[in-house]
Amino acid sequence: MKKIYFLLFTLCFTNLLLAQGSESFTNHDLSGTSYATGSFVGDNNITWNYVACRDENGDSNNAGIDGKALMLRRSSDNSSVSAQSGANGVKSVTMKLYKGFTGAGGRQVELFVNNVSQGSSISFDDNGEHIFTVDNINIVGDVVIEVRNTTSKQVIVDDITWTAYTLSTDTFKQSEFSVFPNPTSNGFVNIKTANNQPVTVVAYDVLGKQVLNTKLTTSRLNVSNLKAGVYILKLTQNGATTTKKLVIE
């Protein structure tokens, strides 16, 4: 089940590049009869992937949900919803959370970017609307955005919004990376940087699983052990981090 798809951001250069995207879950095709794993094309043609989810149960708790939303089942089912940005990272993410069903117990979710936790919401057990915001994420490049249920109780997620992020033009040139050949079928890629200093490379597959973690002192990265497919490379040099999509044929 792929967790990686592309979110298209509209960007404009300022000292920081900022833009905003959103997802209302209006287009999901889930019903209230059972939990399912799959995907749907949401707002602005963004494809979202869900694991062990269902609909919002008609807002049976009268929490004030506006239209449709997505209910995550429980952490033991790895219940989550995810998508990926297609341009220049993420600065902040905000979403609305609601209690699913009436059983007692705390509801809480955790936000991940590139499979790294960015923080958890405050636990709640009431029928109100709760706003969960994470600021200052500040990761550039293609990023995997994922929301996971961390409890054994159902929690409803709605109206996810995010701002894109990249460094200013001058700062970005100092940490500029290029990856070639891309796509590759040779068992290796070259990673070129502006200053040719060591680069830490972490690769994630389409499930968000880390499949490679190494520090390069030369430009050549050995990818012969990776199967054909799409990967995200997280590249870090001198404290600057960006991500690149890599296709292996």
Rank of each mutant, 00 (worst) to 15 (best):
G105N: 09
V81W: 01
N45W: 02
L17S: 08
D59A: 05
S24A: 11
R73P: 00
V113M: 04
A83F: 15
Q108E: 11
M71W: 01
K99E: 11
N88P: 00
V41M: 05
F25W: 10
A87I: 07
G32H: 04
S80Q: 15
R73E: 13
T26H: 07
T33V: 14
Q108P: 02
N45D: 10
N27P: 02
Q108Y: 03
G89W: 08
K91G: 13
E23K: 01
E110C: 07
V113T: 13
A104Q: 14
G38Y: 02
A52N: 12
F25H: 07
M95T: 15
S39N: 11
V113L: 06
V113D: 01
T47Q: 13
V109E: 12
G64T: 11
A104M: 06
T102K: 08
L70E: 08
D29F: 00
S80R: 13
G86A: 11
L17H: 06
G86V: 04
I46N: 10
M95A: 08
S76A: 14
T94Y: 02
G38S: 09
L72G: 08
A52I: 00
S82F: 04
G100Y: 02
N62T: 06
Y35R: 15
L97I: 11
V109M: 03
M71H: 00
L16H: 10
A104V: 09
L17Y: 10
I65C: 11
Q108I: 07
A63M: 03
A36K: 11
F40L: 13
V113Y: 02
G89I: 05
G21Q: 06
R107T: 01
N114H: 14
N114V: 08
N114G: 09
N88L: 11
T94E: 12
R54Y: 00
S39F: 15
N114F: 05
D55Q: 01
E110Y: 05
Q108L: 02
W48G: 00
A36R: 14
L111Q: 14
N78D: 10
Q20M: 12
V51K: 11
D77I: 00
G32P: 04
Q20I: 02
T26W: 02
E23V: 13
Y98E: 13
G105R: 14
M95L: 09
A63Y: 00
E110P: 07
Q20S: 15
G58M: 10
D66I: 12
L18K: 14
N78V: 01
R54C: 12
R54N: 09
D55F: 04
D59S: 12
T94Q: 11
S85F: 07
G32F: 03
N78H: 11
K68Q: 15
G105Y: 07
L111T: 04
A52D: 13
A104P: 05
T102Q: 14
T33R: 04
E56M: 05
G32I: 04
A63C: 07
E23L: 03
L111R: 04
